[in-house]
C-alpha cells in the first residue's frame, strides 16, 4: 500500500499562494503569504486536488511524495 504526502521545498517557494487556494484543506498561508503545509498522509479524496496544487506551483516547490508502507 502506498501513502501520499505533500512535500515543500522552502528554498524554491516564492509565495505565489496558488496551492492554498487549490487545497485549503491542507494548506494555509502564513502572515507573509508562504504556505504552511500539513505534511501528514493525504486521504484518497484529497489526492486529485493535491496533484492539481502541486502542478500549479509556478516554481515547482510543491510536490507529492509517494511512499510504500
Amino acid at each position: 500500500m502506498t501513502r501520499t504526502r505533500l512535500l515543500l521545498d522552502p528554498t524554491a517557494c516564492t509565495a505565489h499562494g496558488l496551492c492554498a487556494e487549490l487545497l485549503p484543506e491542507r494548506i494555509v498561508l502564513d502572515d507573509w503569504g508562504y504556505p504552511i503545509i500539513d505534511g501528514g498522509p493525504l486521504p484518497g479524496e484529497l489526492e486529485a486536488a493535491a496533484r492539481r496544487a502541486a502542478k500549479s506551483c509556478p516554481t515547482l516547490a510543491l510536490r507529492l511524495a509517494r511512499e510504500r508502507r
Partner: peptide, 12 residues
C-alpha cells in the same frame, strides 16, 4: 535568504 518563513519571519 532562501526560505520565506526564515527571511520574513526572523526579520519581522
Amino acid at each position: 535568504g532562501q526560505c520565506g518563513p526564515c527571511v520574513h519571519g526572523l526579520g519581522s
